[in-house]
Write a protein that binds this DNA or RNA. Structure first.
Lengths: 337, 337
DNA sequence: CGCTCCAATGTAATCGAAATCATCGATAAC
DNA sequence: GTTATCGATGATTTCGATTACATTGGAGCG
């Protein structure tokens, strides 16, 4: 409640001195500092944030937009972001865009109003108004992309090698002897899906199995996992393995498999993507691609802080390591019996 | 980038008129308004947030602290909070406290610096410094508690009837014929656990089964579900049903059951709590208590906005409806064979 | 015709802290 | 002994918007 003026009066010094006690204590005599500290304690003074922000033109906040906060993959990334931001003295403004452009635009406006020093977006879309700013200001615009990588956006980013990871999954399945593989992707407008699909196709072609691929387009939700996997299983020439582009869809796939009286992995092998905390506790334990979610969070914050501190040079698109975690949801295909 | 002064000059009006165009357009002549709007578009003006906030002493932000954002229960609540806040023109400052008091205190300081107009905390602890403010300012302090209810805190809150819900679970189990029931709680310092435990004990006593209860204290994590349930199952006089105070711990319990070669529900029935999105896709589908997570989020925001708008009278502790969802993880106990 | 009233707009104070520039006293240098 | 230097602190401007109050010009009225 108290202002810096009241503290100054109470301590018998000027406001400048009070300010210095906080921002440059080495310039203030020990005795004076003590007087000020006492006055601060006496009055319960806390510097007003808006005033400080107006003067310094900095907010010490990072705006983070995410397509769906209730998705455990994203909430783990957010956790990493929050941790790294806090450690650097920044706090996190959260925007759940629910995949809606209107909400993305609302948050873009917040950025333009300077309610945050920087923006981290975890989806694949950057609102046009922000893309214009990026085009005008170049790589020093404090906007960073996490989880996805779309070269055209011209912003720094941190993500895994989605194409390579998906190819590894296919190698694993082909290695087990599978030939007919079903794939449940996410929406193909996002690089995260199209890159993985590219990896799938490349591996399939290497093995001469491209024509035996069955592709279904999901939306990363459990329900779409149930539905799309069900459709794949009901086609003639049922796949002996299904690769879902998220663990949540794989959970749905398990349900579809069970609904049809099939067993995983004996009848159908299943692979997910992300390695959310629950993947290893499913029945059967899920084979999946482990993404370093918290590390992605840390990394995007680091990239952003570099830009804010003017330490950043060119764009950086950081590829973090992933890992194929083979558990018990994958096995050789059933014999011809 | 442009300031209100530049817009005013460009449009040939005063800054007051520009400001009015945004905050009270009905006071401005249509022609004047048009000139201003054009200048705004020309210069790409966006009102500076810090300046506005300093003048109005309002931030239009709500600080939300949560013990663990990566917990799907909390992230669903957060989702409701975000939605309701956005609808009312507020944005969400997220604080992941990781159950650490030090982080809670950091966020408390943010509140005191007025970086947010109000605080919603989803844990069970309110830092002392804030408790003092509540004690001094009374029920008009813009602080609201979600999910938990601790009468001594003297803040408004929204939550379910945890005691009643837990009692219903026990009635369900006793109704199926179970007599030896194991319970895995959360930390008993939080009302969310102690209230549920009170409900469990009350129901057990009604049925004369209190002495057959086995209580283990977990921490809501999957791992603690594995460990504590494992311990219960290894005791002599193994329980025929286990009630975990969270779905995550129930997932761990399923794992513990499987590890011992037991089947759920044939050998051991299992009940969770929360009804997170994954509960109905586990194998077997989990019987659990459904909490209205998004609604809790909406409600705490409503309570907070009432306080901020000076609409609030006395404290409100809102109990929202829960529902016992019986799925296939509960069945009658195995016969004496 | 002169006065009141009101709609439309302008002037300027204000919010609270940061930062630049000015001041003052004391010490050091010549 | 005078002046340059420096450390410590104070006075004042500034950040950019909001808003209370002042001003202006015209319509309405007697």
């Amino acid at each position: 409640m108290a202002t810096i003026q009241e503290v100054a009066r109470d301590a018998g010094v000027s406001t400048a001195t009070v300010s210095r006690v906080f921002s440059a204590p080495e310039l203030v005599l020990e005795a004076t500092r003590k007087k000020v500290i006492e006055a601060v304690a006496r009055l319960g003074y806390e510097p007003n944030f808006a005033a400080k922000s107006l003067r310094t033109l900095r907010t010490e906040k990072i705006l983070v937009t995410v397509p769906d906060i209730s998705n455990p993959f994203f909430s783990q990334v957010i956790r990493g972001v929050e941790e790294a931001a806090m450690a650097a003295g920044y706090s996190v403004l959260l925007g759940d865009t629910r995949h809606e452009e209107a909400r993305e635009e609302q948050y873009a406006a917040m950025f333009r109003r300077k309610e945050a020093d920087g923006l981290i977006f975890l989806g694949h879309r950057l609102p046009d108004t922000l893309a214009e700013i990026v085009a005008a200001k170049g790589p020093r615009t404090p906007i960073v992309n996490g989880c996805e990588f779309r070269p055209g956006l011209a912003v720094s980013s941190a993500h895994i090698d989605n194409e390579g990871a998906a190819a590894e999954v296919m190698e694993h399945l082909y290695g087990l002897g599978h030939t007919r593989v079903g794939v449940v992707t996410g929406p193909l407008v996002s690089p995260i899906s199209s890159d993985r699909l590219a990896g799938v196709l490349a591996a399939a072609q290497r093995h001469g199995r491209a024509s035996a691929l069955r592709i279904a387009i999901g939306d990363f939700s459990i329900e779409s996992g149930v539905r799309r996997t069900g459709e794949l299983l009901d086609e003639p020439g049922r796949p002996t393995a299904v690769f879902c582009f998220s663990d949540e869809m794989a959970m749905g796939a398990l349900e579809a498999i069970r609904q049809r009286g099939l067993r995983c992995p004996q009848d159908v092998s299943l692979v997910g993507f992300d390695d959310i905390r629950f993947a290893q506790y499913l029945n059967p334990q899920l084979t999946t691609v482990s993404q370093p979610m918290e590390q992605i969070g840390h990394e995007v914050v680091r990239l952003l802080l570099d830009i804010l501190a003017d330490r950043a040079g060119a764009l950086q698109n950081v590829t973090l390591p992933h890992r194929l975690v083979v558990r018990s949801s994958t096995a050789p295909p059933p014999g011809p019996g």
